[in-house]
Amino acid sequence: MRRGRLFAVSIVCAAACAAAGKDNGNGGDPIDAPTGGGDPDSGGGGMDSSVTTDAPMADAAPVTITLTQNTGTSIGSNNSIACGNPDGTTAENSWYRVFRLADHGVVGGLRVTAVSFGVQEALGLPNVQIKIGTYSGNLVPPPAQLDTGLITPLTSATFAVPNTANTAPTSVTVPITANVPALSQMIVEIFSPDMNGTSKYFYLGGNATGESKPGYLRAPTGACATPQPRSTTALGFPTSHLFITVAGTH
């Protein structure tokens, strides 16, 4: 947080020196007689006073914000996109969203406090990783594919996704902290490992209500063979709007 400083201008006050004519008793020229001014070393009354105030202003209170590219918050029952295995489990999948801080009115850094994402289906309490980093690639206009080589990791957290066998699609919120530098492009990844042979699966949830920027999927193994993140539209699923949001302060 930038701190302002307030400075007062120095004020200098000086007493006037009065000169009085005085007869020397012989009718001679008048003699200048100091009456309290002049050289301060002589004990006169001259004053040179300066006052400087250097008082820091109080920091502004942090502003809470949620970064989202989704128009709606509902999670649909048929809007997920993921790569699966022949045994009914899910293969390795990573879902991404990239947020330009400036697009959300964040002109300084962002202090991340939580990430929320949709859960369409999950079985077996599968562990996923939430990863936060910065992305140095060009995002204007939004590309059809990202480059994972341009990601700088900041932090990550592991989360066991609750089973949805007897519940409707939902969203979950995971506490996670990260300091994202000012003017950054923050990238968020929800990583799910290959669950072949475990009887587990995870399908990240989304909706079809609209999005301001694309979401991306990377599925490097199996028949999907998508080693770099591609937008859901480029993959042929234009209405699969991945639900991933970020909460924080700035």
Rank of each mutant, 00 (worst) to 15 (best):
R111I: 10
G21L: 14
T155K: 01
I31F: 12
M1L: 12
V188G: 02
G27N: 15
P229R: 09
T64I: 00
A58F: 05
N179P: 00
I130Y: 00
V246S: 04
S74D: 13
T249V: 10
T64S: 11
V115C: 08
V140F: 02
P142N: 15
T209V: 05
Y203P: 00
G38E: 12
H104A: 12
S192A: 14
I187E: 02
G43W: 08
T148A: 10
D54A: 08
P56E: 15
G124K: 09
G84C: 01
L242P: 07
F237W: 09
P56D: 15
A208C: 04
P238D: 14
V106T: 11
A208E: 09
I11V: 14
P181V: 14
P162W: 08
Q185S: 11
T245L: 01
L101S: 06
A168E: 11
G27M: 07
F191W: 12
A165M: 07
C17Q: 14
V51W: 10
T134K: 04
G222T: 05
R230C: 08
F202E: 04
V51P: 00
G21D: 15
T198W: 09
T221A: 10
P30H: 10
A219P: 13
P141I: 02
V12M: 13
C13E: 13
A19K: 07
F159L: 06
Y201R: 11
Y96M: 07
I176R: 02
A157D: 00
I75E: 01
P175Y: 07
Q69M: 03
T53L: 15
T68E: 02
H250R: 12
K213Q: 15
I65T: 13
N78I: 01
T64Y: 00
A15D: 10
N85G: 00
A225M: 08
T167F: 09
E121D: 14
G109F: 06
S199F: 08
T221K: 08
I75R: 05
T89H: 09
L204H: 05
A219S: 15
A58Q: 08
V172N: 03
N79D: 09
S184F: 01
C83S: 14
N70M: 05
P142E: 12
C13D: 14
P34T: 09
S136P: 00
I11P: 15
Y96R: 14
G28I: 05
C17G: 15
T221D: 12
T64K: 03
S184K: 06
G28D: 15
A144Y: 00
P214K: 11
S50L: 09
V188W: 03
P181L: 12
G4N: 13
A82Q: 10
A82N: 12
D48E: 09
G133K: 07
L139W: 00
L146D: 04
S212R: 06
I190S: 01
V161S: 02
T221E: 09
V98M: 06
V63C: 00
Y203A: 07
S116K: 11
I11L: 14
T155Y: 02
C224P: 12
G222F: 03
T158F: 07
D23Y: 07
G133Q: 05
T90N: 11
I81H: 06
G46R: 05
N24Q: 09
I151R: 05
K213N: 14
T90K: 07
D54M: 06
P34Y: 10
I11D: 15
A102V: 10
T249Q: 13
G46T: 11
T89I: 05
L123D: 03
F243P: 10
A60K: 08
V9N: 12
S184V: 08
A208M: 02
